[in-house]
Design a protein around this nucleic acid. Structure first.
Lengths: 149, 149
DNA sequence: GCTGGTTTTGAAAGTTGATTTCGTTTATAG
DNA sequence: CTATAAACGAAATCAACTTTCAAAACCAGC
């Protein structure tokens, strides 16, 4: 358990008590698995993962837990347009910047200082308070370009 | 019928004959309705719209026609993460830049020269050939900010 | 520790939009 | 025309998401 993960768990517990909700074994197990995975995932993946160790945990519980994590601000929903709702740990920034290769399907995350500049400019000119930003670039990655000659 | 729309229809007909597919009454009606609407739409909206004038057109046919339009390059699929697959006329650029207000749900399109600059920089640094670009900013719009005081 | 009221759980059912099936109809080349 | 491949529409199916409901777990107050 990293210190960052410990902090996330505290944040979630604080959210629960603030809302009069209960801390349960299942919620703890699901949150642990979610944090341990440390990458974006979706309900069924997490469900199957947990199912191995804790056969009693149900699909609906995983579903509800992930939504609760999102409501608590410790997780974030991702929609990549593939019909699946993914979740990732929300800590550290609110950006989601992807390069999606239309050839091999690889999804690369990137971080470019231009993004911040871009964000500031749009916010200024449109009078818009930006809360989150999602940029998805689709194209052909270096590797696939090389393969195609 | 604008000249641009006429061109789109020619493009679609060319696609059909190139692929050995058939031009049908339904496909023409659906394409006309889609072009006339002149904004992003989804299957059911278009279906209901057509249904009024041409009660024999079925849901499946609208669905298949829109996918065909996309395959022909005259339409483009849009996924805004709301569970609906939308389509819009593909003519004119490959960008989709949105501002989504998390308060009132309004979706505003924007066009900012910074986008192009940004795109070029990312492509250069990552060795990525960008084909399409989707930017979605979520936040609070001017109007809602004013209402909240 | 109990107890009582509330919340949570898991299995199963329901919902929704997307997609396919299938028998019939239509378009088009020869 | 006629053959045949494609397209049609209604209905069925699919997959992911979401809700229902009775039983179980939680926890604040005794």
């Amino acid at each position: 358990m990293t210190q960052a993960n410990q902090k996330v768990k505290e944040q979630f517990n604080h959210f629960l008590s603030k809302k009069g909700l209960k801390g349960t074994l299942q919620r703890n197990l699901i949150l642990d698995a979610f944090l341990d995975l440390d990458r974006s995932t979706h309900i069924d993946e997490l469900y199957l993962l947990l199912r191995g160790k804790h056969p009693t945990i149900g699909h609906a519980t995983v579903y509800r837990a992930l939504r609760l994590f999102a409501a608590a601000g410790v997780a974030r929903e991702i929609n990549r347009g593939d019909g699946l709702t993914r979740y990732e740990v929300a800590s550290g920034g609110k950006r989601r910047d992807y390069l999606v290769c239309i050839d091999c399907g690889t999804v690369t995350e990137f971080d470019n200082s231009t993004v911040e500049q871009f964000q500031a400019e749009v916010a200024g000119s449109m009078g818009f308070s930006i809360q989150s930003l999602k940029i998805e670039l689709r194209g052909v990655c270096n590797h696939c370009k090389a393969q195609q000659g």
